Amino acid sequence: MRESLVPVVLMSHTAHIRSHRKPRRNASTLAMRAGVAGGVLSTLAVAGASGAANAAESTTTQTLDLSALTADLAAQVAQSADATQQAAANYELQAERDAAAAQAAQQAKVDLADAKAKAAAKKKAANEAARKAAAEEAASRSSERTTLSASASTSTSTTSTVSAPASGSVATVIAFLKAQVGDAYVMGGTGPNSWDCSGLVQAAFKQAGVDLPRVSGDQSVAGTPVSLSNLAVGDILYWGSAGSAYHVGVYIGDGQYLDAANPSKGVVIQDLSGYPASGAVRVL
């Protein structure tokens, strides 16, 4: 009788230990895991592509922004340069104007000083010429004054006599008066560039050493009365009554007199026929 052969299954000596046995993986689990892995890879791929695209777009945007910024900066620099150039031009123009104004002001000061110097020289020359003629005039006037004083003693008019020094000169008085022609009339003015009528007469006779009263009324009786038909150069003319005259002037010959007339005329020479005087007195 044949012996039946019983297959013998050889097992690993560790087969009976459960922890050493590898569990079987079925197809569905592997498939699921493969899908998940593919999805992850796809997501990473998409994310990578998207990041690359965004990076590219960002780079492009930054490039465009940088170009625009550069252009804008260049425009601002150009505008600033234009503004600086214009400001420099304006400053240079203003400097030229200021220099011209300063030069004009300086020239005006020089001209004014020159005019004053010429006027002073003119007056000085006139006064000097008058003083040189003083001696000659004093002799001829002395005898005439003596005659007038004798005839005035019989006059009924009230007068007061002002003594004149021997060196007194009508020429000095007239020269001084003519040097003031063109000066302004100012009430109460006593010179040197503005006068009222009595202030001018007082200053003129003071040049010859005669001290006259200050106001017209007193000057009208401060000498020997003279008729208007017997006037001589240097006689004081007055308008109004003797002792209360309201205006005075000095006779300069040829039917003319010189006075500080009024604010509109100033110091002028006028014809006696146009404004006849009320009377006259002689102190030189």
Rank of each mutant, 00 (worst) to 15 (best):
K109T: 12
V210D: 05
A78H: 11
Y246Q: 13
L258D: 04
A179D: 14
H13G: 03
G274T: 10
G274Q: 14
V9F: 08
A150M: 07
A129Q: 15
A134Y: 07
V215H: 03
K118S: 15
L73G: 10
V267H: 03
G182R: 10
V215C: 00
R25K: 15
A277W: 06
A71Q: 14
V283T: 11
A52G: 14
L258T: 10
T63D: 00
W239Y: 11
L112G: 06
P23S: 12
A150I: 04
G279F: 04
T154R: 08
H13P: 13
L69R: 09
S140W: 05
C197Q: 06
P213C: 06
S149G: 07
N54L: 12
D218E: 14
L231I: 15
I252F: 06
G182S: 08
G182I: 08
A53P: 01
D254I: 01
S244P: 01
A260G: 05
Q103N: 01
L66Y: 03
K124V: 00
A222F: 06
L148D: 05
G39W: 02
S140V: 15
G182Y: 11
A115Q: 13
T63S: 12
S198N: 11
V210P: 03
R145E: 01
A134K: 08
N193H: 10
R131Y: 09
A88H: 04
L44R: 00
A232Y: 14
A129G: 13
A104G: 03
L5C: 02
L228R: 09
A87G: 12
A78M: 02
K123M: 11
S244T: 15
Y246A: 02
A108N: 05
T154W: 05
M187T: 14
Q86S: 07
P213L: 07
A104W: 11
S50I: 00
Q76T: 12
G51N: 10
S50P: 01
N90F: 06
P23Q: 14
S140G: 08
A15Y: 15
V201S: 13
E3T: 14
A166L: 07
I174Y: 04
A104Y: 13
Q62S: 10
S12M: 04
D65L: 10
Y238H: 12
T84H: 14
A52N: 00
S273V: 06
N54D: 05
E57S: 05
S28W: 07
V181I: 14
S227C: 03
N26C: 02
S169T: 10
A75N: 13
V46G: 01
V40L: 13
L212Y: 08
L69H: 09
S278E: 05
S155F: 00
M11P: 03
V170E: 03
I17Q: 07
A87C: 01
V267F: 03
P263A: 06
K22R: 15
A119H: 02
L212S: 08
A104E: 07
L212P: 11
M1V: 10
G217Q: 08
L64Y: 12
L93R: 10
D98Y: 01
D183W: 06
S153C: 06
P276S: 10
A78I: 08
H16D: 05
T59D: 11
E136W: 03
G243E: 01
A139F: 12
T190D: 04
Q106L: 14
G182K: 12
R25T: 07
G255F: 00
S167W: 07
T60I: 11
K132V: 08
G234S: 05
G249P: 08
K124Q: 09
A56S: 12
S227Q: 11
